[in-house]
């Protein structure tokens, strides 16, 4: 038995490397301590359960919220009886929708402005100003325009994503050395060739960084928008649960928000950024 454990540990060490294994183990210690303290609080009640809910309650809240869910079809149709999945899916749905619409739009406008000096002279200050009205400050006006609901929350996220993407793509295109553009043109390339073969790959690292940044800011803005001007989504859920003092549901929502955000960033956006910088980084950094 002990040799089996020993073999396993050696196998894991071979697979991940001793250093990484050490980091994984070390890194999980504070989380374990945090959960232990959390649980100890339930046992000893230093803080009442109204302020810090027992771990068990948070876990049970999932099933409580899903209780009335009438099967798989209801779950997929975002039936209101499936509370937690409805909120999770409607948040994620907005993120995906905003990404599909906002990212390409921002990139396209950004590249266009990066190419034309005159255009960017006018649109750059607009971009600076729009980025400065940090996403969430649009919420009240969006409510006036679109009422409380899907459109408002989607608008807030789109607005946040678009301007960040626009700005990063524009800066990315501008950082591409003029020589590359000229060389394609002298070889008889068209304007479209220049965009495809010079600007897009040249601005790629900046665009991907912008993507990661805009999804981060966009996700934060979305949660705020759902709280103030939404009628569904995780932000809406934790806000209404807080109003009813159902703290276990608030904790559940916050944990969901953090996990979804971190997973997207760590397993999708960060590797994408790393890959692009490694692949295209040389084009980007002239020094």
């Amino acid at each position: 038995m002990t040799t089996a454990v020993g073999n396993l540990s050696i196998a894991i060490q071979r697979r991940f490397g001793r250093q990484r294994l050490r980091k994984i183990i070390l890194g999980s210690i504070p989380f374990a301590v945090m959960i232990t303290i959390w649980h100890a609080n339930t046992v000893f009640e230093w803080l009442p359960p109204v302020f810090i809910p027992p771990i068990g309650d948070v876990w049970e809240a999932i099933f409580f919220l899903q209780e009335d869910c009438a099967g798989f079809v209801a779950l997929v149709m975002l039936d209101n009886s499936c509370l937690i999945t409805t909120h999770v899916f409607s948040s994620i749905g907005r993120v995906i929708l905003a990404a599909i619409v906002g990212l390409p739009l921002g990139i396209a406008f950004g590249i266009l402005c990066g190419m034309s000096r005159t255009l960017s002279k006018f649109l750059e200050p607009v971009g600076v100003f729009a980025n400065s009205i940090s996403g969430i400050a649009w919420i009240p006006l969006a409510i006036v325009w679109f009422g409380v609901g899907w459109v408002t929350t989607l608008f807030i996220m789109l607005n946040t994503i678009f301007w960040l993407m626009f700005f990063n793509s524009m800066l990315g295109v501008r950082s591409v050395a003029k020589v590359y553009e000229e060389s394609v043109l002298t070889m008889g390339g068209s304007r479209w060739d220049v965009i495809k073969q010079v600007y897009l790959p040249g601005a790629m690292p900046s665009i991907i960084t912008g993507m990661r940044m805009s999804m981060g800011f966009g996700w934060r803005a979305l949660i705020a928008a759902e709280m103030i001007g939404g009628d569904s989504g995780l932000g809406f859920m934790i806000f209404t649960s807080a109003a009813e003092f159902k703290i276990e549901e608030v904790f559940l929502g916050v944990i969901f928000i953090s996990i979804i955000f971190m997973a997207t960033d760590k397993y999708l956006l960060a590797p994408l950024e790393k890959w692009t910088v490694e692949r295209w980084g040389l084009v980007w950094r002239p020094t």
Binding site: F51, M227, I238, A242, V250, V254, S258
Partner: peptide, 14 residues
């Protein structure tokens, strides 16, 4: 990474 806005409902209960 956990945005401050997300923990707002917790703090508001406190």
């Amino acid at each position: 990474s956990v945005s401050g806005i997300a923990i707002f409902p917790i703090v508001v209960i406190w």
